[in-house]
C-alpha cells in the first residue's frame, strides 16, 4: 500500500515507514515542495525476493510492482524491521539513508559504544558483561549509582539508574527470566554527574544542522522528549561541532541524532547515536528546517 504524490519529473524518493509520525509527514511535504517525486511507503506492505538481486541493475524499479525510486529514507520505528528492509534495499542497489552498517551500529548500544571508543570519541565509561553473576559482581565493584541499559531499545525504556546492590540483583533476576537472549547481555554505564539536561544534535552528512538542550520532565531523570522532556535551543560551539562530527564518522555517517551529556569534570560526552532520528522536539525550537535538510541530503546522495 503506497500513499503517493507526484509533482514533477525530477528525482524520486521513498520514505519507508511503519508508524506514520509527524516527522514522516514533514519529510514528504518538504520533498514535494522541493519538487521531487516523493511517496510514503508502508514497510508492512513490502515484499522482497532474491530474484532481483545481482542482476547488475538498479532493481528498485520492480519490487512487487512497486517503484521505490532513486533513494529511500528509512524511517521505520521498529529497529529490526528497518534494519532488514535496509539490507534488502542495499542488495537491490537502492541507496538508503541510513545504510545497513550505520543502522546496525546505532541500533545496538554495545556496538555503538564500541564504535565511539574505537574512534576516540569521549563517552561515559561503559562495561559489557555476559553473565548474571559477573554483572552483579561488576556493579558492586564499580559502585552505585550506576546506569543499566538494554542494548536494544529506545526512548529511555528500561534504562535504570541502579541505586544499590539489592536493586541490581532484582534487575538481573528479571532479565534472566526474559526469553530474549539480548536480555542476558549486560550493559553498565557510569552515572554521569550532569545538569538535568542533555544535548541532542542533528548531523546531516558533514554538518551539524541544529542542536537543542533536552530538559527532563518534572520528576524524571531521563531527558527523552518521548518521555515528556522539553527542548530549548543550544548553540553549536566548535567543541560541540567537533565531537558530533567525530561521533557521526565513528558510526558511518548519514542522518543522525547525537546525544551528549555535559560532564562536570570532563566536558562533553557522547552517550548515544540515533539512526532514525526523531526531530519534532528539535524542530519546535530550531530555526533550521530539519526535514528540508534531510531531503536535500538524500538527493545529494543520489547524485554523488
Amino acid at each position: 500500500m503506497v500513499s503517493s504524490s507526484m509533482t514533477s519529473n525530477g528525482a524520486s524518493l521513498s520514505i519507508v515507514f511503519d508508524r506514520l509520525r509527524w516527522e514522516e509527514k514533514e519529510l514528504l511535504e518538504k520533498a514535494l515542495r522541493l519538487g521531487y517525486n516523493a511517496r510514503l511507503v508502508d514497510a508492512k506492505d513490502l515484499v522482497f525476493s532474491t530474484s532481483g538481486i545481482g542482476k547488475g541493475t538498479r532493481a528498485g524499479s520492480a519490487i512487487d510492482g512497486m517503484n521505490l525510486g532513486d533513494v529511500v529514507i528509512q524511517r521505520c520505528i521498529s529497529h529490526y524491521r528497518g534494519l532488514y528492509i535496509t539490507a534488502c534495499l542495499e542488495s537491490l542497489a537502492i541507496p538508503t539513508i541510513n545504510g545497513y552498517g550505520v543502522a546496525e551500529t546505532c541500533g545496538n548500544k554495545l556496538l555503538c559504544s564500541l564504535a565511539l571508543a574505537r574512534h576516540n570519541v569521549p563517552t561515559p565509561s561503559t562495561y559489557f558483561i555476559f553473565s548474571a553473576e559477573k554483572a552483579i559482581e561488576m556493579a558492586n565493584n564499580l559502585g552505585y549509582p550506576i546506569v543499566f541499559k538494554p542494548i536494544v531499545g529506545s526512548w529511555g525504556r528500561l534504562v535504570i539508574p541502579v541505586k544499590d546492590r539489592e536493586m541490581m540483583e532484582s534487575i538481573v533476576e528479571m532479565r534472566e527470566e526474559m526469553p530474549n537472549p539480548l536480555s542476558k547481555i549486560y550493559y553498565l554505564q557510569e552515572y554521569v554527574r550532569r545538569p538535568p539536561r542533555d544535548i541532542r544534535a542533528i548531523v546531516v552528512g558533514d554538518r551539524v544542522i541544529t542542536a537543542v538542550y533536552r530538559y527532563a520532565a518534572e520528576g524524571e531523570w531521563k531527558t527523552n522528549i518521548a518521555r515528556g522532556g522539553k527542548a530549548e535551543p543550544c548553540k553549536i560551539t566548535k567543541e560541540l561541532e567537533d565531537i558530533c562530527l567525530r561521533a557521526a564518522e565513528a558510526v558511518g555517517g548519514g542522518v543522525l541524532g547525537i546525544d551528549i551529556m555535559e560532564d562536570e569534570a570532563r566536558g562533553l560526552l557522547v552517550h548515544e547515536v540515533n539512526n532514525t532520528v526523531e526531530f519534532r522536539g528539535a524542530a519546535s525550537v530550531s530555526s533550521v528546517d530539519i526535514a528540508h535538510e534531510i531531503v536535500s541530503y538524500a538527493m545529494r546522495v543520489v547524485r554523488a
Binding site: 511503519d18 529497529h79 536494544v152 531499545g153 529506545s154 526512548w155 530474549n180 540515533n274 532514525t276 532520528v277
Partner: peptide, 9 residues
C-alpha cells in the same frame, strides 16, 4: 501495532 521492544530512534 502496539509498541514493540525495538521501537524508537
Amino acid at each position: 501495532e502496539s509498541v514493540g521492544e525495538d521501537w524508537g530512534e
